[in-house]
Simulated scan of single mutants.
Amino acid sequence: MTIHSNDPVDPVVQVPLSGQGQFANPTIWLSASSHDFGNVWVAADGKANWRLRIANTGNQNLEIVDLILNNPAFSVSGFSGLPIVIVPNDTVSVTVSFLPTDTLTYLDTLLVGSNDPANPFVSVSLSGRGILDDYTTGYVFWNYQVPDNPRSGSSQDYEVDGLQTINDINGDGVGEVVIATENYWLLCLDGNSSGTPDTLWSFNTYISNYSAGSIGQTWDYGVQDAIDIASDLNGDGYNDVVIATGGGNEHVYAVNGTNGEMLWQYGTDDPNSYGLGDFEAVDAKRDFTGDG
């Protein structure tokens, strides 16, 4: 809004205005109306996961009261129980999984029931195919596209700077894969995947335009040295991840291996810290203090 007046010092004043429209009732929104899991290995050799986001665009609490599937090859998890209560303008995610038991094409419809008076049931069409081939050298079990980092705007470099494996954190008996990317992500991917792996957790090292750090330096040969797996730093029985960053966010971060939450940090994100140099390597395998 622009205000004009006879004020000799400030004759024109700009007042920024913003707002968000809301529906008058609980209103459901889904991130997709269909999903194809593609080719997935049969039985224990493969399991594909997909995150379905459910949002409430109304001004009253949305309650998800039913998540109905008919084909046992598909399942829904990632929530503690029903109803799932979503407050206005909030979003939750559930994990839809596909575990084929035969070399067939599978179809199903996920029905999402809620207290949305206009749409008490909304549907998501699901499909997938079970495959069973010989394992051959170079066979691609799954592949992953690094996502945009919403904090870094148009500055997106999808290069994977470092990769490590970590022990099983989701109980499927297969270890997970942790990657650090040039667009400031630390991501844990489900190792027991087929097609596209599920992202189990993420950690963001982009703080601001002046304080953003990926691991090591892209022109160094030792970037892989800036990510390491530590043997259970917080006593929960799982390994954790330690990374070293530079480029305005000079830090060593210790990250919980089960959920991606920061355990501790050391360093600075002062925008004037460029001249101090970067953390370019970490070693989390030695106990120097004798505390185990």
Rank of each mutant, 00 (worst) to 15 (best):
S34I: 02
G222E: 12
D66P: 03
D168A: 04
A118H: 07
L52Q: 03
I169D: 06
L187N: 03
V282N: 02
D134T: 14
I68G: 04
D172M: 05
D291K: 06
A230D: 04
N6H: 11
L17F: 14
S193Q: 07
N256C: 09
N39P: 08
N239E: 15
N25S: 15
R286D: 13
S93Y: 09
Q60A: 15
R286S: 14
D225I: 00
I179L: 13
L69F: 03
V42I: 10
V146C: 03
I215S: 02
G191W: 01
S127H: 02
P197E: 08
S5D: 10
E159K: 07
W264R: 10
A212S: 12
V282K: 04
N115P: 01
D10C: 06
T27P: 07
P26T: 07
L99C: 02
D45C: 13
I215L: 12
D134Q: 15
Q20G: 13
S33A: 13
G113P: 03
S231E: 12
L187F: 07
V177W: 00
V92A: 11
G257R: 09
V252R: 06
L17W: 11
G58N: 08
G128D: 02
S123A: 15
W185N: 00
N71K: 04
A48G: 00
N256T: 06
D225G: 09
D270E: 14
T101R: 14
S123Y: 11
I169E: 08
T218Q: 10
D198N: 15
N71Y: 04
S194D: 09
G175E: 09
L126G: 03
F288H: 11
A254Y: 11
V85H: 01
S273H: 05
M262Q: 15
G216W: 01
N192V: 00
N39T: 12
G247P: 01
N25M: 13
